[in-house]
Write a protein that binds this DNA or RNA. Structure first.
Lengths: 337, 337
DNA sequence: ATTATTTTTGTAACCGGTTACATTTTCGGG
DNA sequence: CCCGAAAATGTAACCGGTTACAAAAATAAT
C-alpha cells in the first residue's frame, strides 16, 4: 500500500495525498478532501515509507552516535552518562538515533561524508574515547560536515565540540588536597596514548603542582597500563611493595582509584587516614565504595543532551559554523580525601 | 556524485556500475571495465547512497532496538547487559542498529508494521521492561513481523522470544536458602503491575515455599513501590520497625536487596548472621556491597547476542516462524546468604 | 567466414515518496 | 452570467539506486 494506491482509492492525485501527509502543507488541501483521504488511510492502515521520504527529501531525520565497537561501552559510567543525555535530548525531537560502532581496526575508513551516506544519517555525534585517532583527527578538522565531538577538546580543534575541561577539574582536586594540608601528592596515571583526557589530566596535574608547590617527582608517579580497576589494583600493589608512598594520590579515573583503594585496604593502609585518594569521573559506585570516593564529576547527561541539540541545529541549518560548548566539572567531596 | 555520474564518466551504463558495486555480481563485469569504474570511483570518492539502495532493494539492513524512553535505561545493569550483547551480536554483521525509544504515553501507537516503516528498519528487538503493555501485547501475538521479544515470556506468547526463566532462578535461591538451614524465609516484592518478571518471581517464590516447606505468610511479605534501592531501603526500614523479621529474605531484584542491606546495617542487624539476603539479576555492584550480595545471574549478554542473531535469521528469511530460546539463570553465591 | 553460444553491457521501468509548475475549480464582484 | 483572483488539484520529473529483459560483443564451433 503506497501513496499512489491511496491516491487512486481516494480519487485524487498523489500530490494531494502527499500534501495531506505533510503537516506543513495540510491546509493546502480542502477540508472535504482531507476527510476523504483520511478515511482511506485509516481504512488501509497506510503510513508513509520513511525510506522513500528520506530519499526524496534528501534528509534522513536520523543522527548517528559513533562509539568504539565494544560491549564495554555501555558498561562504562562515562558513556552511560553521555548516552543517557543523548537519549534525553533526542526524545522530544523528530529524529531517530542510529548507533554506529566503529572498530579500531577500520582506520582507513575515515571519510566523514562516506559515513553519513553509508549509514543514512544527517549528522554525527562522536563519543571518541579509545576510538581510532585517524577518524577523530578528520572530524576535528572538518567544519563542513554536521558533527559534534564530545570531550576531545584541544585548542586546535576546529569542529563543533561539547567538552568539559580536564584542567579545571584537576586544579580543583589539587587545591582541595593542598587546602587539606597534603603536601606529598602523587598520581596514578592512565596510559597517555589512549586519549587526550589522559594526557591533559597529567599535564594539568604537573602544572598544578608547580603553582601549588608540590613536587611531581618520580617515585610519586605511576602509570597504569589501562584505565581499569584491576590495573589500579595491580599498580598500587607494586607501589606499596616498593614503599615510599605519598600522603595523597590523584588517580586519573575512578576505576584506578577503586582498585588502588582495594590494594591499600589489603595492605592495612587506611584511607584517608594514611593516604588520601581522589578519583576522576564520579561514577555512581563512588557513593558505596569504602570509604566513599572523592571525585570530579563531569555533567555528562547535560553534555550529551547539549550535543544532540547542537547537532540538530547544525543539521537543520538553524546554526552554521562550529559551535563550542564548554562545561565545568564539579568536585564531589566524600570521605576518601 | 551519484551512480549516473559515475557511469557517464566511466563511459558505461548505470547497470554496469551497479553490478560492480554489488559484491555478488561483481564478476559479471569484465575485469577491464571493473578497473575503469574503480578508478573513477576512487577519483571522485563515490560511495553509494544507502537510502536509495534501501528503497530500491526494499531492505534497510537495519534493525531496531526498542526500549522505553528514559535515561535510566542505560543506567540499569539489566539493560546494560542486554545492550552489550546486542552490540556484540551486531558487530560482525552488515546491519545497522537503530535505537527506537517509546514513551509509555504513546499507547495507541502500536502497529508493528507502522513502526517498521516509520523507522526504516527490517526487524525489531524489544527490551520491554516497563514498556507500554499494549505494544508488548501486540508483539506477543504477532508472528508475521520479524520481532524478538526479550524476557517477557509466558506460555501464551507466540512470537519469537529470548528469555531466562524466573521460576528456575527463584527455585535455585530457595533451595540454596533451605539447604543452608533457613526456615523462615521472607520476600521483598516489587510492584506486580510493572512486569511479568515481578509476578513470576513472586509466584515462583510461593510455589517453592510450598514444595520446600516454608510458609509464605503475611508478615514475611512486603511489597515495594518500585524496583529501586531507595524503595528497598524505605520498605526494609518499615519492616524493621514493625519487628517480626524472618531469618532470610529474597529480594525481587538487587536494587531492593542493596537498599534492604543498608537499612539493616543502620539498625545494627548483621547480614548474614542475623538475616540472610539474596537479590536477583546480579548487578556488578554486588561484588562490592557489604557484604557481597548473593544473587541470580541471567546471561544477559548471551541473550542480547542471541536476540540479534535470531532476528537476523528472521529478517533474512533464513528461518521462519517463531523461534524461542530459553536460557538458564545461575546462582551466584557470595557472602550475604 | 559464418553461425551458435556465452559474456558483457545497455535500456528503461521500478522502488515510494516530493514538488515545481500547469491546470482546473471555486467564489466574489461587477 | 461573466471575469479575474485565489484556492485546490493534477502532471510529470526527480531523488539514487536495482534489475528484468533486450541487445551487443566476444568467443567457440562448424
Amino acid at each position: 500500500m503506497n501513496i499512489r494506491d491511496i491516491a487512486k482509492k481516494t480519487g485524487v492525485s498523489v500530490a494531494t495525498v502527499s500534501r495531506f501527509l505533510d503537516p506543513q502543507k495540510k491546509d493546502l488541501v480542502r477540508a472535504e478532501t482531507r476527510e476523504k483521504i483520511d478515511r482511506i488511510i485509516r481504512k488501509y492502515h497506510y503510513s508513509p515509507n520513511r525510506t522513500a521520504q528520506a530519499l526524496s527529501r534528501q534528509i534522513n531525520n536520523t543522527i548517528g552516535m559513533v562509539t568504539p565497537l565494544s560491549p564495554d561501552v555501555v558498561k562504562s559510567p562515562y558513556f552511560e552518562g553521555l548516552i543517557a543525555g543523548i537519549i534525553e535530548g533526542i526524545g522530544p525531537l523528530a529524529y531517530d538515533l542510529k548507533w554506529i560502532m566503529i572498530r579500531n581496526e577500520d582506520r582507513e575508513y575515515c571519510n566523514l561524508h562516506e559515513i553519513l551516506r553509508e549509514h543514512s544519517v544527517d549528522g554525527l555525534i562522536f563519543l571518541t574515547w579509545r576510538l581510532s585517532t585517524n577518524l577523530v583527527d578528520e572530524v576535528q578538522h572538518r567544519t563542513d560536515v554536521p558533527a559534534v565531538l564530545i570531550n576531545d577538546y584541544s585548542p586546535s580543534v576546529r569542529c563543533s565540540i561539547v567538552y568539559c575541561e580536564n584542567r579545571s577539574g584537576v586544579k580543583k582536586i589539587c587545591s582541595h588536597l593542598t587546602s587539606k594540608g597534603y603536601k606529598r601528592i602523587g598520581m596514578l596515571k592512565g596510559p597517555e596514548y589512549i586519549s587526550l583526557d589522559a594526557r591533559e589530566r597529567f599535564s594539568a596535574f604537573k602544572s598544578s603542582g608547580k603553582k601549588m608547590g608540590f613536587r611531581v617527582r618520580d617515585p610519586f608517579l605511576y602509570e597504569c597500563p589501562r584505565f581499569e580497576e584491576e590495573a589500579g589494583y595491580q599498580t598500587m600493589k607494586l607501589w606499596v611493595d616498593k614503599g615510599n608512598l605519598p600522603d595523597a594520590i590523584f588517580c586519573a579515573n575512578d576505576g584506578l582509584a577503586i582498585g588502588a583503594i582495594r590494594a591499600l585496604n589489603e595492605s592495612k593502609i587506611k584511607v584517608p587516614k594514611d593516604i588520601a585518594i581522589v578519583g576522576y569521573d564520579d561514577s555512581p559506585r563512588n557513593e558505596t565504595t569504602n570509604p566513599p570516593l572523592t571525585s570530579v564529576r563531569q555533567p555528562l547527561e547535560a553534555m550529551g543532551k547539549a550535543a544532540v541539540e547542537t547537532l540538530v541545529k547544525l543539521v537543520s541549518k538553524e546554526a552554521k559554523g562550529a559551535i563550542r560548548l564548554k562545561f565545568e566539572p564539579e568536585l564531589i567531596v566524600r570521605e576518601s580525601a
